[in-house]
């Protein structure tokens, strides 16, 4: 870990035109290379926060700063809850999209898309159309598309929530392996305490209505983490701590 700050949020709030105050007073410093999870109940503003960091929405108040320089479009990768692929385009064409939008010639873009499909375990599926792929495979295509520009920051909004547990575990491991090799920074939104503990170095617990940061926990288990970690007492301890923090956050809000 370098310790340099990639991104800082200072007093960030978002009120939608409908009057909903989605998040309020978020302060956060994100270290480059970190794996951060945002954990919180439905409607606590996790997606809103992610969209503001991606530049897809403007904060109503507060500032989002990039100490190392403002990001170019290729510096941020985004993975949605749904695979969000273009159904009329092959897997390779879907992955090549960010490059082509940036002006990379089609042939080069497709070649690099092929490489990345290989890296997410989909070698040989370059010409497959999304409808011929399983849910897990579509998610892999989506991941390859987010990484093909070699982003500094990868934003993931409950990416594996719709998958079965076996597929999700596999994708978790593959994501960690890619993160280990590429050293991008991750903000990972999830509903799952277990998933957040397994993956992240740092977990932020949000409380709902309006969304506020309620707890900031560190999971100090070493990487690489594998199935052994999933069954360890250390893992169980962290899960308990995070669950308690989440319950406390919900309780404070209900009171």
């Amino acid at each position: 870990m370098t310790g340099t700050s990639l991104l800082t949020l200072a007093g960030v709030s978002k009120r939608y035109p409908t009057g909903t105050l989605a998040v309020e007073g978020i302060d956060l410093a994100l270290e480059a290379g970190d794996f951060l999870s945002l954990l919180g109940p439905s409607g606590c503003g996790k997606s809103t926060l992610l969209r503001m960091i991606a530049g897809l929405a403007e904060p109503s108040t507060g500032r989002i700063a990039w100490p190392g320089g403002a990001p170019a479009p290729r510096d941020i990768g985004f993975v949605f809850q749904e695979p969000t692929l273009m159904p009329w385009a092959s897997a390779a064409a879907n992955v090549a999209l960010p490059l082509e939008l940036a002006g990379t010639p089609r042939r080069d873009a497709l070649a690099r898309a092929g490489e990345w499909l290989g890296r997410v375990g989909l070698a040989g599926f370059e010409n497959a159309y999304p409808r011929a792929l399983s849910g897990g495979m579509k998610m892999r295509v989506s991941l390859a598309r987010a990484l093909v520009t070699r982003p500094r920051l990868l934003l993931m909004d409950e990416p594996f929530a719709a998958l079965d547990e076996i597929t999700r575990f596999k994708l978790n491991n593959d994501l960690l392996a890619l993160w280990d090799a590429e050293r991008f920074t991750v903000i990972f939104v999830t509903h799952s305490v277990f998933e957040s503990v397994y993956l992240s170095r740092r977990i932020l617990v949000l409380a709902a209505r309006p969304g506020r940061l309620d707890a900031d926990l560190t999971v100090d288990a070493p990487y690489p983490r594998g199935e052994a970690f999933r069954t360890s007492a250390d893992y169980a301890g962290h899960c308990r701590a995070v669950s308690e923090a989440l319950a406390a956050a919900m309780e404070r809000r209900a009171a």
């Binding site: 897809l56 479009p73 985004f78 969000t84």
Partner: peptide, 9 residues
Amino acid sequence: NLQDLFRLY
């Protein structure tokens, strides 16, 4: 979401 993706890039 695809429209957002295009905007992002």
